[in-house]
Design a protein around this nucleic acid. Structure first.
Lengths: 147, 147
DNA sequence: CCAAGATAGTTAGCATGGTAACCGTATGGA
DNA sequence: TCCATACGGTTACCATGCTAACTATCTTGG
């Protein structure tokens, strides 16, 4: 992602909002600032994850598998649903996680269409390795937002 | 982009923040919510732009050229700098805008390394066509955020 | 009971972000 | 002056998002 360094000017937004009474210049500007903040944060997170041979999506996939309370595995579709990405992206992500030895993918018992995806011990270790840095970055970002 | 439908739970974040006193669960959670909101908004914007044969980046490129106060053209590097994307992405974006007839790219006079990029009349029309919808979406998003 | 449809997953191909490495043009100091 | 360096732009290639269309496995209704 990305976003303009210099946001659309207040004057430019004003030109729109005067013609649309329900719109408010300040809140539109706040939304643009949010987009800019989010885009910088994503860059920072992606670069952090890259240092750990992960990406944001691979990390989040580990998270959703790990945090499932009653089970130790999920199907690919369940993971796609929780991550809110398309199934093809999920397939690719799981293949790369499996190649890195962070998850185990097995044929589901019962319905032969499903696959069971579970964390390996390495996967759990990787999560433990990365979580502190992840929350530290989020915590910094919160602090900056308030500054 | 994308982001978890179900954010990391308060309990999970707590587990980190108790070990790191400077971190605060509420602000970390607020940052995660911001990421989720930004990701949904980006999807909405990209789909809006696609309806107009644009993308977010192509649209923003038109904006930064148009809003330059004293000049009617920018160099590719200046555009890259303002958009905050890499120069190769800028090259590709400008090529597709030129192919669509929305910008004109000419060799710069003087320093032969530069190119001058200017909006065509079609480019200005396209901006005028798209801006109201753009701000309407941002305005909606602001409203939702406050709801 | 089995053909038609639904569902899980994959493959193929496109768009758009990135970095590394290249060319051509300027520029500046030995 | 002219070679080394810097700079603008491009090319080549990789990562990661998407949709469309495919295969394989259930499920269901005539």
């Amino acid at each position: 992602m990305f976003f303009l360094k210099e946001l659309p000017s207040r004057r430019m937004i004003n030109g729109y909002t005067v013609a649309h009474p329900q719109a408010d210049t300040n809140t539109v500007l706040a939304t643009l600032q949010m987009m800019r903040r989010a885009s910088l944060l994503i860059r920072r997170l992606e670069s952090f994850f890259a240092e750990h041979d992960l990406s944001q999506l691979r990390f989040l996939a580990l998270i959703v598998i790990d945090r499932e309370p009653e089970r130790d595995s999920l199907s690919a579709s369940e993971i796609a649903e929780r991550l809110d990405v398309s199934r093809p992206v999920t397939t690719r992500t799981l293949q790369s996680l499996a190649a890195a030895g962070l998850v185990r993918v097995e044929a589901g018992e019962g319905d032969g269409r499903f696959k069971r995806v579970a964390l390996t011990q390495n996967g759990r270790s990787k999560l433990a390795e990365v979580l502190p840095g992840y929350f530290a970055i989020l915590s910094d970002a919160s602090a900056e937002a308030r500054a």
